[in-house]
Computed example of a mutant assay.
Amino acid sequence: MKKWFVVLLVLLSFSFISKNTAITEEERKNAIAYFKETQKALADELKGLSENQLNWKPADSVWSAAGCAEHIAISEKNLFDWYGGIMKAPDAPERRSELKMTDDMIKGMLTNRTFKVKTREGFYPTGMSASNALALFNERREALIKYMSETKEDMRNHIAETPLGLVDGYQLLLFLSAHTKRHTLQIAELKAHPDFPKN
Results as ranks from 00 to 15, higher is better:
K57C: 07
P58E: 13
S61H: 12
S61M: 10
S61I: 10
V62N: 06
W63H: 04
W63E: 02
S64T: 11
S64C: 08
G67E: 04
G67Y: 04
G67A: 12
A69R: 02
E70K: 08
E70T: 07
E70G: 12
H71N: 06
H71R: 07
H71A: 06
I72C: 01
I72H: 01
A73W: 05
I74N: 05
S75H: 05
S75D: 01
E76M: 10
E76A: 14
K77Y: 05
K77T: 13
K77L: 09
K77G: 02
N78R: 13
N78C: 02
N78L: 10
N78V: 11
L79W: 01
D81E: 13
D81R: 09
D81M: 09
W82K: 11
W82R: 12
W82N: 10
G84W: 01
G85L: 06
M87G: 04
K88R: 09
A89S: 11
A89C: 03
P90T: 09
A92Y: 01
P93A: 09
E94R: 04
E94V: 04
E94C: 07
E94W: 05
R95G: 00
R96G: 08
R96P: 02
R96A: 09
S97Q: 09
S97G: 06
S97T: 12
E98W: 05
L99G: 01
D104F: 07
D104I: 07
D104R: 09
M105N: 00
M105E: 15
I106T: 02
I106K: 03
K107Y: 01
K107M: 06
K107C: 08
G108W: 00
M109H: 02
M109C: 01
M109A: 15
M109I: 07
L110K: 02
L110V: 10
T111F: 03
T111Q: 07
T114I: 11
F115N: 14
F115K: 15
K116Y: 02
K116I: 14
K116L: 12
K116Q: 08
K116R: 10
V117I: 15
K118P: 00
T119K: 13
T119A: 15
T119Y: 10
R120F: 13
R120M: 15
R120D: 12
F123G: 00
Y124A: 15
Y124E: 05
Y124L: 14
P125R: 14
T126Q: 15
T126G: 12
T126Y: 08
M128S: 11
S129L: 12
N132V: 07
A133C: 07
L134V: 10
A135I: 05
L136M: 14
L136R: 14
F137C: 04
N138G: 12
R140C: 05
R140I: 14
R141V: 13
E142Y: 08
E142H: 11
A143Y: 10
I145R: 09
I145Q: 12
I145E: 06
